[in-house]
Amino acid sequence: MAVAAGSATATCLDVGVTIAVGIFELFTYAIPGSLYLAFFAYVVGRAHWIDLAAVTRMPVFLLVVAIVLISYLMGYLAYPVGELANKIVPRHRQNHTRNDFLRRNPAAKDREYVNADPFLLLAALQLHDNEVATDVTRLRATGLMLRNSAPPMLLAAIAAIVELFVGHSPVFASTCAVLFLAGFFALIVQARRLGRWASMRTLEFGFWLPDIDEKFRADS
Score class of each variant (00 low, 15 high):
residue 186 A to R: 13
residue 170 P to C: 01
residue 19 I to E: 02
residue 211 D to L: 03
residue 16 G to L: 11
residue 200 M to L: 02
residue 174 S to K: 06
residue 82 G to P: 01
residue 31 I to G: 08
residue 24 F to Y: 03
residue 178 V to Q: 06
residue 7 S to A: 15
residue 152 P to H: 09
residue 31 I to N: 12
residue 50 I to E: 02
residue 5 A to M: 09
residue 203 L to H: 09
residue 102 L to V: 01
residue 216 F to H: 12
residue 18 T to Q: 05
residue 193 R to S: 12
residue 104 R to F: 14
residue 96 H to S: 11
residue 46 R to N: 12
residue 166 V to Y: 12
residue 39 F to K: 12
residue 114 V to P: 10
residue 126 Q to W: 05
residue 130 N to G: 08
residue 139 L to R: 08
residue 40 F to R: 08
residue 64 V to F: 09
residue 147 R to S: 08
residue 134 T to K: 11
residue 141 A to P: 06
residue 94 Q to Y: 04
residue 83 E to A: 11
residue 69 L to H: 11
residue 125 L to S: 10
residue 156 A to F: 02
residue 120 L to F: 14
residue 147 R to V: 14
residue 132 V to W: 00
residue 209 L to P: 04
residue 142 T to W: 00
residue 60 V to Y: 04
residue 100 D to H: 08
residue 110 D to L: 04
residue 146 L to N: 09
residue 197 W to D: 15
residue 67 I to Y: 15
residue 102 L to Q: 01
residue 168 H to C: 04
residue 131 E to S: 07
residue 51 D to Y: 01
residue 75 G to T: 05
residue 41 A to H: 07
residue 89 V to F: 03
residue 43 V to M: 02
residue 125 L to Q: 15
residue 106 P to V: 03
residue 80 P to F: 03
residue 113 Y to W: 06
residue 203 L to Q: 08
residue 59 P to L: 01
residue 205 F to S: 07
residue 203 L to V: 05
residue 105 N to T: 14
residue 18 T to K: 07
residue 197 W to S: 15
residue 20 A to G: 03
residue 32 P to A: 07
residue 44 V to K: 02
residue 139 L to W: 00
residue 211 D to K: 09
residue 6 G to F: 02
